[in-house]
Amino acid sequence: MVENARSINIVASLILIMGVIFIFGPLYLTLATASHSYEFMLQNGLTWSFGGNLIANFKRIFTETSIPMQMVNSLIVAVGNAVAGCVLSFLSAYAIVYFRVRWASIVFALILATVILPLDMRFVTTYQVASNIFSPLNAVLDATGLNDAVAGLFGAPFHAEWSILNTHLGLVVPLLAHGMGTFLFRQFFLTLPKDLFKAARMDGAGPIRFLVDILLPLSRTTFASLFVLTFLSGWTQYLWPLVASSTAEMQTAVVGLARLVPDEGAVPDYPLIMAGAILVSIIPLTMIALLQRYLVQGLVLSEK
């Protein structure tokens, strides 16, 4: 039912304007604060007026903080998350949809379960595994008693250690354990004609050929949607990078921004922090501006 009365139009417009103020108010305050000096802010608090220190604050971000380098880290995490996520999701959805895999529905259910079991809920165990990615293997060998046999044969039990904490790999890999992309591709594959795979086989195309020649070109927009979504989620990750990286050189920009707030009771340098926040937002903002279409498509698809 679409009403077209004037009064309703006015009320609707008012609600929309309030929404815009609600969203843009803090953004404006960020921009205004970033344009003042620390001293001005100490005297006047946060103000709605603009000052002349915006460029100077940006310069300070580059000279006094690790944010620029941390933005490179963020980029590695975001791109790594997006690329690896797309490839893994594409391949797993391909296997689930096009092959008669034993227990396929159970595998898919397990993949989907990661959506309701996000990283934040598996933090402690994820940290344990990241600190030594062989720890599950070691535990299994110990529990099954296989290690006793190994110890008998070689004189020492099997024990391997490899920590991926404080590495780019360690920042990205735990984020990948997420079923949304697989779901997205699965839904897309199911919309394609059912006999496409068979037709390609009749034409002499094997599974790889079908993947490359038929499925990949058809999946372009799904790839774009998933890329934007996972890139943004990778860029804005906070908790995992905070825990998994212990040095400033390994931290991501979002973590670095939070670290600009001094630990003691001193008043934080808000103009500097706000300038940093603006810089850190530029890349995802550009991304959204350029690939908005795909972002919307991806959101619509993932909600179905």
């Binding site: 394609l192 006999d195 068979k198 086989r201 009749m202 034409d203 002499g204 070109p217 058809l218």
Partner: peptide
């Protein structure tokens, strides 16, 4: 299939859309 010398026409055509 490709080694059997058969070709097939499907009910929903199954043409490659792209």
């Amino acid at each position: 299939p490709k080694e059997r010398g058969c070709a097939m026409v499907f009910q929903n055509y199954a043409l490659y859309p792209h």
